[in-house]
Design a binder for these strands. Sequence first.
DNA 1: TAATCATTCCAGTACTTATTAGATTGTTTG
DNA 2: CAAACAATCTAATAAGTACTGGAATGATTA
Lengths: 215, 215
Amino acid sequence: MKGARRIKDLLYEQVARIGKVFSSPKRLELIDLLCQGEKTVETLAREASISLKLASSHLRELRMAQLVETERQGKNIVYRLANKSVADLWVQVHTLAEERLVDLQLALQKIATQPDDLIANDRESLLKAARKGEVVVLDVRPTEEYLNAHLPFARSIPLEELRQRLAELPKDRSIVAYCRGPYCLMAVDAVELLKKEGYSAIHLREGVAEWAAVK
Amino acid sequence: MKGARRIKDLLYEQVARIGKVFSSPKRLELIDLLCQGEKTVETLAREASISLKLASSHLRELRMAQLVETERQGKNIVYRLANKSVADLWVQVHTLAEERLVDLQLALQKIATQPDDLIANDRESLLKAARKGEVVVLDVRPTEEYLNAHLPFARSIPLEELRQRLAELPKDRSIVAYCRGPYCLMAVDAVELLKKEGYSAIHLREGVAEWAAVK
DNA sequence: TAATCATTCCAGTACTTATTAGATTGTTTG
DNA sequence: CAAACAATCTAATAAGTACTGGAATGATTA
């Protein structure tokens, strides 16, 4: 009986190693970024607005929990998620948070570009419309992330280049812009710009990780 | 641009509130117990082998993260998971842990009753065999937990009563015993007892939460 | 209405974790 | 091979968390 207690403690402690990784906001942001594809420490630090050293130490935690893998490429060390389950877990964690935490719901409502993102909830019809060419699905992330993975039928125009490349987009069809996911604001900015320029633009909250996650 | 940073920090911080709950072994054990159905603080404390006060304070964390609900029933306060997503997340977290952490794999191998739990991975055939009555699916958890939810076609004999009630079980068919899940050792004990008494018994790692989780 | 019971709240201590600075390792480039 | 670079490791400190004991709350029973 006493032995059983010791074994159980050990088992839950191991699982908690994974939970610990998901208990820090900055580590969550790093995971979210890694869902877009492999990245160097420097890129991760810059994108998450933290120092290199701090990024390195958070990444160390991820590495010790076996949630990421590293590889040296020339001068740099690139990190990538160990497998798809990690991205799936991130999606499930933030989905549950959005389901349960009123504060989070309120914060998200403020940044939503209102209220025409109805389409966001209905993958089937978005997919169908995209296939038929009735809407343009627009990926505004950096090009490498688009190349790593993107939504079906999506076109890539990074947010930085959008203003110069507006002419590539049609004015007679809806443009559905997406970025890294619900906590990335690039698509929000893109929609704002497009609307100002007279396009019919919609914000899709989901990114590639949310799209690919098992439901 | 600065504002965007502040918003992001806020969003990830909210999600981390959920992650924090999953970062403590004892809280994980409480969640695992709550997956079996609603329970009083005292029951939870006893089952998790912690003091009432400590249980109460961990449950407070769960409550503040909106992952559980409470209700007064007479003298007692009962806790229950706020919704099924919480159980699903627990399953996904421990599944990922089992996938990635070698230490956990080794610890689990030690308690596995070897190696005939092949059936455990194949729900379809277990279900079919149970329907036909070719195997007996045996739930060895306390009766209330069985009544709250159980696997299809399962019969209930709590581990405590198993020795006295052996006669109820057939010797000419395999008995598939399960309990609260992979970190509960009741089914292991049950299988050991059954085998000693000349029954053909198999241990099913999954509990109701694992069975019900979206895959 | 007092006594009891189940649970929570509060305060304190021991332990962990986040973050920063400084020194170190391994790689590439001149 | 030296200089520059990317990232890590090693302290060190500040902030946060786990757990314990004592007091407080709110419902029930005598």
